[in-house]
Design a protein around this nucleic acid. Structure first.
Lengths: 354, 354
DNA sequence: CACCAGGGGGAAAGCGCTTTCCACCCGGCG
DNA sequence: CGCCGGGTGGAAAGCGCTTTCCCCCTGGTG
């Protein structure tokens, strides 16, 4: 990035032009220090500042001890409606409290996530919110734990959305329960052979949803060896790839559980193109209930999470809790059955290939 | 926001612990000043820094003359896929250049938009990108012009997406042309009576799209007095309200032009609930071609804009152009006709009410 | 009339870092 | 053997702002 040269109007300029000291100018403009500046003097200084187009240097203010009013938000991908909704909640609460939100986009890279946290710490962010799923990696987890630990120890706040196994304030969406509910619902419909389109198992959220789903199936007496696990990226393209694998291997599954709505979207594209009828040939379910799901035809069964509220909650937890406590706020998951699920056809055999 | 107390590890701590001066410590860690620190000494200092969990204070660095590597992005609403896509482009380019993006969400308030720009200036952002439509307000425009002027004059960059009538680098989506194309396409299909669901006319983008549409109709010989203008907020709810008004007044329009896809989404909801068949009873079109539109049933006709590329371009313009020039990069709009549009039925009379 | 309280302003000390400008130590050269 | 120049480390001057002291002036009080 280019280096900003000087040439800015400084407080000293305003002071000189007004014939007062920088101290007085600061007090007049910022009203600070519990001190009062004479009415007329202040008005004159404010007028001069306006005339000179004075803009205080936020870095200098922060350095000199003022508050920074900045929060760092880490997401995997801001175009994913899941993160957009959470971000909206975070931003709303931050705005209420007069803080600005800086967004770091990791594209699901552990390294980048850590780097963003470090950058936010360098900026002395008042709070850091991790919106994405954690990674199942010991090194990552230790490093992140240390970062957040220091963040809190030095008076900053932080919070995470989703299970991170970190001793910090946590917003916990119902991943296991929701997936389990979905599993039970599908079994109740008569399904016995399942496929699961999961993102990389290194994402905690993915693991929990899959485990919840499988546990429920097992509890219902479905032999897990019949469940096909399709391991593909946690994205729309990943969903597409999963569906293609399903078709290629000539799967006999009657229901496909995609661990996120965006994956379901991708899968549905491929299935439609291949002429697979949903739900007649295959029931498809997603997770999160992003706004699009209810509008598709057939409308997609999924699990509803109040994402914006989760974002709000995370932001509140981050700023309201000292380093001592690490509360966990659970958000319930609600199974929403729509037209993309139906009892399996009597003769569910299907040709593979594409 | 809480005020961060000190208690942080500073460069001086690292220097003392390593038995060197702050100057040497700075050079060792940051490699700066075109100067070299002895190999072994540097390693020792780096090691000490790591052991102490030293995190440089970005504000101090910025103040002392280092670069800030920050860009400010102003959007109306980050959950709107239109802005999310643009944001993605901006963030991608910023990341390539090692900069962080701070997002300000205005919820379509002129005051907030100006305030964000001032805040970004205070942060000495390297670049400021305005992603949302400008407002048709002389005071706003003068104020914004002055802010951006100073931003550039002091070495910062800036760029706007959409028409702002500002002498700064501009990314110009084809609003008039796209809307005109849509209008011609509808007329060619046989439509003669139209309704337009527009956001508030104070948004330049809205005005241009409506004007482009009406101009095309007029050019095709459609009497404009027959065109019903529905003035509602530029949002999904606004689209809903527009559709309700359409129904309430027992409109005889055969085609509805929504100035944005999200408005179309809201309108389609209401129309579906009211039993209006699309496109048989009413053709509906949107604008922007956000990903959802092609998946709806019927798939929605709209105008495609490469939003992410627009974001990338805006970011590039912002950082690559000094205060002298104000290039304009045009992005073509492409009419995409899908199933939501069809020739009007022979007997288009329809009952109003709801 | 001396004294004190308090309002209003200024001087100056940082905040943590970068970056000149110096000082020093060596080896090499005339 | 005196000098010079390159390679290294340190001292110190800010960057622009806030805030603690400190000072002065005014006016009320004993």
């Amino acid at each position: 990035m280019r280096i900003r040269p000087g040439g800015q109007v400084t407080l000293a300029d305003v002071a000189r032009e007004s014939g007062v000291s920088p101290a007085t100018a600061s007090r007049a403009l910022h009203g600070g220090g519990g001190r009062v500046v004479g009415q007329d003097l202040r008005e004159r200084i404010v007028e001069v500042a306006r005339r000179l187009h004075y803009v205080p240097n936020a870095h200098a203010q922060a350095l000199a001890g003022g508050s920074t009013a900045t929060v760092g938000l880490v997401v995997h991908d801001i175009t994913d409606p899941y993160f957009a909704a959470i971000a909206r909640g975070v931003i709303a609460v931050a705005a209420e409290r007069g803080a600005l939100v800086t967004v770091g986009t990791t594209f699901r890279s552990m390294e980048r996530e850590l780097e963003f946290v470090r950058t936010f710490r360098a900026q002395r962010a008042d709070a850091i919110v991790l919106a994405g799923s954690g990674f199942e990696d010991a090194d990552y987890r230790a490093a992140m734990r240390e970062e957040l630990d220091h963040q809190r120890r030095t008076g900053g706040g932080c919070a995470v959305v989703s299970e991170h196994d970190l001793p910090v304030p946590t917003v916990l969406p119902g991943n296991r329960e929701g997936a389990a509910g979905l599993g039970r619902a599908l079994v109740a419909m008569g399904h016995r052979r399942f496929a699961v389109a999961g993102g990389p198992p290194c994402l905690t959220t993915v693991r929990h949803r899959i485990e919840g789903f499988l546990d429920a199936l097992a509890a219902c007496g479905v032999p897990l060896c019949d469940v096909e696990l399709l391991d593909h990226p946690f994205s729309e393209d990943g969903g597409r790839a999963a569906a293609r694998e399903l078709l290629d291997r000539g799967s006999r599954a009657t229901a496909l559980f995609c661990v996120s709505d965006v994956m379901a979207l991708g899968a549905l594209d491929v299935l439609a193109a291949a002429g697979v009828a949903v739900p007649d040939d295959l029931s498809v379910v997603g997770y999160n209930d992003v706004p699009m799901m209810r509008r598709l035809v057939p409308a997609v069964s999924t699990v509803r999470l109040d994402l914006e509220a989760m974002g709000r909650s995370a932001m509140e937890l981050a700023v309201d809790h000292g380093s001592a406590d690490a509360p966990v706020v659970r958000f319930p998951a609600e199974v929403v059955l729509r037209a993309s699920t139906a009892p399996p056809a009597a003769v569910p055999a299907r040709e593979g290939g594409r």
